[in-house]
Amino acid sequence: MGAKPIEGRMTAAGEDEVVVFLIGMRINSFVAVRSWWPVARAMGPMLAELARDRGSGLLGFRSLLGGARELHLVQYWESREKLLAYASAPDGKHRPAWAAFNRRLREGKGKVGFWHETYVVPAGSYESVYVNMPESGLAKATGVMPVGRRGERAADRLRKP
């Protein structure tokens, strides 16, 4: 069924800098299951590891489909430092998954594609609005509040705190 919609116009409660990390994979050959299935499967354990560690810096995430061939993940982080610390942690799940992915990438000869983008967004440089929606996206990661507390227009919500 999903979460219950919150009636009215809401915005994300977050006021601090936020790091938005987009990551995705593209299945270039559906028959090359050995190339793409382990890549798709690796993200769940990493997200579970991050969710268990309240100090990891991961605020929240959401999975998206990008057509029939692409899987996307939007992650919200407290800081670039915490994102980079997780990516390079020698005892975390990311480094072995990344090494295995790179091996498969070389062996698969183009059967799976991968991409990521990182955006560091300063405080006061983002805004959001959610109308009759459950907590979603950034609001799910940082909490939700009525739009009026930040301003009725996008321009009002984008001013520096």
Rank of each mutant, 00 (worst) to 15 (best):
A3W: 13
K4D: 14
E7Y: 13
A12V: 06
A12W: 01
E17V: 05
V18S: 06
F21V: 12
F21N: 07
I23C: 09
G24V: 14
G24W: 05
G24Q: 03
I27T: 11
N28R: 13
F30N: 00
V31R: 07
V31N: 01
S35D: 14
W36P: 00
W37A: 15
W37R: 15
V39P: 00
A42P: 03
M43K: 02
P45Y: 01
M46C: 03
M46Q: 09
L47N: 01
R52F: 07
R52C: 11
R52A: 14
D53R: 14
S56Y: 04
S56I: 09
G57A: 08
L58C: 04
L59Y: 06
L59E: 01
L59S: 04
G60I: 06
F61W: 07
L64I: 06
L64E: 12
G66F: 10
G67H: 04
A68D: 15
R69L: 08
E70I: 03
H72C: 02
Q75P: 00
Y76G: 07
E78H: 15
E78T: 06
E78R: 15
K82D: 06
K82M: 11
L83N: 06
L84W: 02
Y86T: 08
S88H: 14
A89N: 13
A89K: 09
A89V: 10
P90M: 05
D91K: 12
D91S: 11
D91Q: 14
D91Y: 09
G92L: 03
K93A: 05
K93I: 02
H94E: 01
A99Q: 11
A100V: 02
N102G: 11
R104E: 07
R106Q: 11
E107M: 06
E107V: 05
K109I: 10
K109W: 07
K109H: 12
F114R: 10
F114W: 15
F114A: 13
H116Y: 12
H116K: 13
E117I: 03
Y119F: 15
V120W: 10
A123K: 15
A123C: 09
S128D: 03
S128Y: 12
V129K: 04
Y130I: 03
Y130T: 05
N132F: 13
N132Y: 10
M133P: 04
P134Q: 12
P134E: 11
P134M: 10
G137A: 08
A139T: 08
K140H: 11
T142D: 07
P146C: 04
P146K: 08
V147W: 01
V147G: 00
R149F: 05
R149E: 15
G151R: 04
G151Q: 02
G151F: 05
R153L: 15
A155V: 07
A155R: 13
A155Q: 12
D156R: 04
R157V: 09
L158E: 06
R159P: 01
R159C: 11
P161V: 05
P161Q: 05
P161E: 13
